[in-house]
């Protein structure tokens, strides 16, 4: 996979920033507008898929190596679990929205509001983006092996 023509490369070079920003926006404003951690994460992953198609797999792997992505994947899930456990420790019940009830009520429809929900969105966004990226990367990686298997 050497990537596509120069036109595709340049256009996707411009567009990638916008897509990435849009993904981050969807995650950050998940508690106010439609979307959220999952939708934003998918957009982030799709940005990497675009780069993978345009520039080839090796380029993307240099940018976000597989072990790092795998670790970020775990960190995302771990952060989500930690938010839930903090609810148990600080708020008295698993998954309770302790930030909203005790520390940071915030005003409705502001960016900083809704307590732990934006934090959970961030964690989910990280988790979904990296795991979807990993799924696509691994699927594209194992193609040569499969054809080798068939010859046997």
């Amino acid at each position: 996979m050497k990537g596509m023509t120069i036109i595709v490369k340049i256009i996707s070079g411009w567009v990638k920033v916008l897509i990435f920003l849009f993904g981050i926006y969807i995650i950050l404003f998940g508690h106010l507008t439609p979307g959220g951690g999952f939708a934003g994460g998918v957009i982030l992953a799709s940005c990497y898929v675009l780069l993978m198609l345009a520039f080839g797999r090796e380029f993307v792997e240099e940018n976000l190596p597989l072990p790092l992505a795998s670790k970020l994947d775990c960190v995302g899930a771990l952060a989500f679990a930690v938010i839930a456990i903090l609810g148990l420790v600080l708020g008295g019940s698993f998954f309770i929205n302790f930030l909203y009830q005790k520390y940071l009520p915030g005003e409705a429809l502001n960016l900083i509001s809704a307590g732990t929900i934006p934090l959970s969105n961030l964690a989910i966004g990280l988790k979904v983006a990296t795991s979807l990226f990993l799924v696509i990367l691994v699927l594209s990686m194992f193609r040569p092996d499969m054809s080798g298997d068939k010859k046997e």
Partner: peptide
């Protein structure tokens, strides 16, 4: 939590 913590050790 253990499941997500373990792969970070590498």
């Amino acid at each position: 939590v253990t499941a997500f913590l373990l792969p970070i050790f590498g």
